[in-house]
């Protein structure tokens, strides 16, 4: 649910990076944070455990500039991937405007991707969010590793609608901005249609 203020001419969107544990959600956010100019970003908040696993969420506000005189701001969140943080994931999905599913391309994480995807559908359902109209991007991460499933195989199982698919190596920053651009465009096009 975007927040539009006609008085201050600001529009805010919420993007959530979803996916199984250790798929690279936090790495995506951190790479975006490194790449964007300092005057267009707020502080990166990371609620992590001692071993740097996400405990609650990572967050930072990103100011993308203006469109037709309106300031466009994105709030980027990750969810904790571990199975047992289900309640936290649900809370973070509230009011989401767009989701990036960060899939782990490694063969041994194939099942974990499917499980996380189902968990995401359950959480969307809880908030009556219609997946068919939700701006959504599938990112196939860790494409540089040797033990990965082919893209065609991952797409056959994980691609649930005609969503854009981005191959990424988030540790190197490859595909990270492309993913953000892709989801941002989908969100803006979606809101443009809704506000008509």
């Amino acid at each position: 649910m975007s927040f539009l203020n006609y008085s201050t001419k600001e529009i805010n969107f919420k993007i959530v990076y979803y996916g199984p544990g250790l798929s690279g959600k936090t790495t995506n956010i951190k790479k975006i944070y490194e790449k964007v100019k300092s005057d267009s970003k707020g502080k990166l908040v990371s609620l992590a455990t001692e071993t740097e696993r996400t405990l609650f969420f990572d967050f930072f506000p990103l100011d993308l500039g203006t469109v037709k005189g309106y300031k466009v701001k994105f709030h980027l969140y990750t969810v904790p991937g571990q199975i047992y943080y289900s309640s936290s994931r649900k809370l973070i999905m509230k009011g989401v405007d767009g989701v990036v599913f960060v899939a782990d391309s490694q063969r041994e994480r194939f099942e974990a991707n499917i499980e996380s995807l189902h968990d995401m559908f359950d959480n969307l359902k809880e908030y009556n969010i219609d997946f068919t109209t939700l701006p959504y991007v599938l990112q196939l991460n860790k494409r540089d590793l040797s033990n990965i499933s082919p893209v065609i195989e991952l797409n056959a199982t994980l691609r649930k609608k005609e969503e854009p698919v981005v191959e990424a190596i988030s540790l190197k920053g490859d595909g990270v901005i492309e993913t953000l651009k892709s989801i941002s465009k989908l969100i803006m096009v979606n809101v443009k249609q809704k506000l008509r």
């Binding site: 649910m1 927040f3 805010n12 970003k41 707020g42 502080k43 967050f59 506000p61």
Partner: peptide
């Protein structure tokens, strides 16, 4: 709001900091 958007404010604080604090409070 419950999604972490700062709706209005008064007092001296940068917008970006206020946004981060808002999201943490909502959480």
């Amino acid at each position: 709001d419950s999604e972490g958007h700062c709706i209005a404010s008064t007092g001296e604080m940068e917008d970006s900091r206020l946004n981060s604090i808002s999201s943490l409070i909502a959480g």
